[in-house]
């Protein structure tokens, strides 16, 4: 039962990643692309967690935590750069 649910979940998250990629390529403004990258990282975290359940290992959680932190910092830096023209004033 878990393996079927995992297959469904991995498929859905991969399709979501492809849709984010479309928005990243097409996205009319820069902020659309920033939002697409942020969503991609969040979906990649979900993919890592599902893969961790599939392999029954807790090895990948540190990677997920690091990705969460870097996604937050990079998104804030991008938005601040667009807002003020500089990251650290």
């Amino acid at each position: 039962m878990i393996s079927i649910a995992l297959n469904i979940g991995l498929l859905a998250v991969s399709a979501a990643l492809l849709m984010n990629l479309y928005r990243l390529v097409v996205g009319p403004s820069v902020l659309d692309r920033v939002l697409a990258v942020d969503t991609m990282v969040v979906n990649a975290i979900a993919l890592i967690i599902l893969y961790g359940i599939r392999e029954s290992t807790t090895l990948y959680f540190e990677a997920a935590l690091l990705m969460a932190m870097f996604s937050f910092i990079s998104t804030v830096a991008y938005c601040r750069f667009l807002l003020r023209g500089d990251v650290i004033e």
Partner: peptide
């Protein structure tokens, strides 16, 4: 798992 994957799909 299914509920979480569904919401991720809907969000994207």
């Amino acid at each position: 798992i299914v509920v979480g994957a569904f919401f991720i799909f809907v969000g994207s």
